[in-house]
């Protein structure tokens, strides 16, 4: 059951990466990275149990904190002019590659 759970979390991480690469607006990508981070915390905890080394839980705690701080940092520094969208439409202003 643990291995099945690990595989399921891994599949969700791949889905999050797809949204992170595709996502049309910037905030989609921030959301994808946040979700990727939460799933990584779960993946590390599950892998710790699967491989029989419960020291991985320390890494999981660190990663949960770092994920939170990174998303807050991104949002804190996105208050400048260069990141705003046009106020009346639902598309973003930045150039798409």
């Amino acid at each position: 059951m643990l291995i099945a759970a690990t595989l399921a979390v891994f599949v969700v991480m791949i889905l999050a990466i797809i949204r992170g690469v595709v996502g049309p607006t910037l905030y989609d990508r921030i959301l994808a990275v946040n979700m990727f981070g939460t799933k990584t915390v779960l993946l590390i905890s599950l892998l710790g149990f699967v491989m029989g080394r419960p020291e991985f839980l320390d890494i999981a705690i660190v990663y949960a904190l770092i994920n939170f701080i990174s998303v807050i940092g991104v949002l804190r520094y996105s208050d400048t002019n260069k990141f705003s969208h046009a106020p009346t439409e639902n598309k973003s202003l930045k150039q798409e590659p």
């Binding site: 939460t38 949960a64 904190l65 994920n67 939170f68 807050i72 996105s78």
Partner: peptide, 24 residues
Amino acid sequence: LTLLVGPTTSHVLAKAAMRNGLMP
């Protein structure tokens, strides 16, 4: 930690998107 941090992140993300003009 997860229960504390998860909803906060959603709240902050939505607030920042709304303030920066992304309309639903």
